[in-house]
């Protein structure tokens, strides 16, 4: 054995000092990390405070009154008309149309992926969904205007379908939300233990019966959470409606007419040169705050449901 330069300390003769050391570096780093963790709280405070502050200015304007907001169907803040219904109905329409597409398709794809598809098919389809989910929404906006609208017009006639319409925006929004609902639903379905499926098969259930009557009910709360997140996403979606749904508040329930959603309105108003503290400027903060609270509520509900769902299977 080669002569080693290592002098092994006679450990029992080594001074023994176990006292706590002040490790300043560790403390500084921990402080910085805590700050980073806490930072997101500032974001929320920032949203509530900044949006709330400007929104308050909006609500305090002499022309503003709550009755007018609820009872009127005309939204023209700069001339003192604050009927929010046109924006709300347009948002509801695009959302309903989008969900009408995304829920059934999303369920179908998710059940297919989780219960039927072979591992090979799944390994091809999941990246396709990821690609679909990774495409920027403005591209979907282009698609709505340049593909869906012409398609609708050729099917229903140019005189029926306006160039800007909520149907086209809603349908494409459904495609946009499809991957989100699919992947959340599929997660929920795959979380259902295999023993449950085996129990069903063991009693002679067909694949469909096991899937629809055992697996889906067991995953129902997870699926509900997926749908709620989808709705929240649809309400907050902006660029598709900004491009394809129409540029002007319009109180209508005709999906082939143009109308402006809350988000579409904010984008159009702020796209021009927006003077600070003007009615329009303040109004987008009020609308933004409304949007924030609606989506926040939906997200919290969905998270609650999801948490309860996972508690069952963990």
């Amino acid at each position: 054995m080669a002569e080693s330069t290592i002098k092994w300390v006679e450990t029992d003769k080594r001074p023994l000092n176990l006292r706590r050391k002040l490790r300043v570096g560790e403390l500084v780093i921990q402080g910085l990390l805590f700050f980073s963790g806490f930072f997101s709280i500032f974001t929320t405070i920032g949203i509530v405070y900044e949006l709330g502050k400007e929104a308050l200015l909006f609500f305090q304007m002499p022309e503003f009154n709550l009755i007018g907001t609820i009872a009127s169907v005309e939204w023209k803040p700069h001339v003192g008309k604050f009927g929010i219904w046109p924006l709300v109905t347009a948002t509801m329409m695009t959302t309903v149309i989008a969900m009408a597409i995304a829920i059934p398709l999303g369920m179908g794809v998710a059940i297919y992926l989780s219960e039927y598809a072979s591992p090979k098919v799944r390994s091809i389809l999941k990246p396709v969904l990821e690609v679909l989910a990774g495409i920027p929404t403005i591209v979907y906006g282009y698609f709505a205007l340049m593909f869906m609208t012409p398609l609708l017009r050729s099917v229903f006639g140019n005189e029926v379908v306006q160039i800007y319409n909520t149907a086209s925006a809603g349908l494409v929004m459904g495609i946009l939300i499809l991957p989100l609902i699919t992947s959340m639903t599929e997660d929920a379905l795959s979380a259902v233990p295999r023993s449950l499926r085996e129990a069903a098969y063991g009693m002679g259930a067909t694949k469909l019966e096991a899937a629809l009557q055992v697996v889906v009910p067991a995953a129902l709360s997870g699926i509900a959470a997926a749908i709620i997140i989808g709705i929240s996403r649809a309400i907050g979606e902006t660029m598709i409606v900004a491009v394809a749904a129409g540029a002007g508040p319009n109180f209508t329930f005709n999906p082939f007419e143009g109308a402006e959603t809350i988000t579409g309105h904010i984008v159009r108003i702020s796209g021009g040169d927006l003077a600070y503290d003007s009615v329009d400027y303040n109004s987008i903060f009020a609308l933004g705050l409304l949007l924030f609270f609606i989506t926040l509520t939906l997200n919290i509900i969905s998270q609650r449901i999801v948490r309860r769902f996972w508690e069952v299977y963990e």
Partner: peptide, 20 residues
């Protein structure tokens, strides 16, 4: 007790303990 010192004394540094 480790060499006569209580390892769980509040003044003891756990990092130091694991080093020994």
């Amino acid at each position: 007790n480790f060499e006569g010192q209580n390892l769980y004394d509040p003044s003891v540094d756990p990092v130091e303990v694991r080093y020994r």
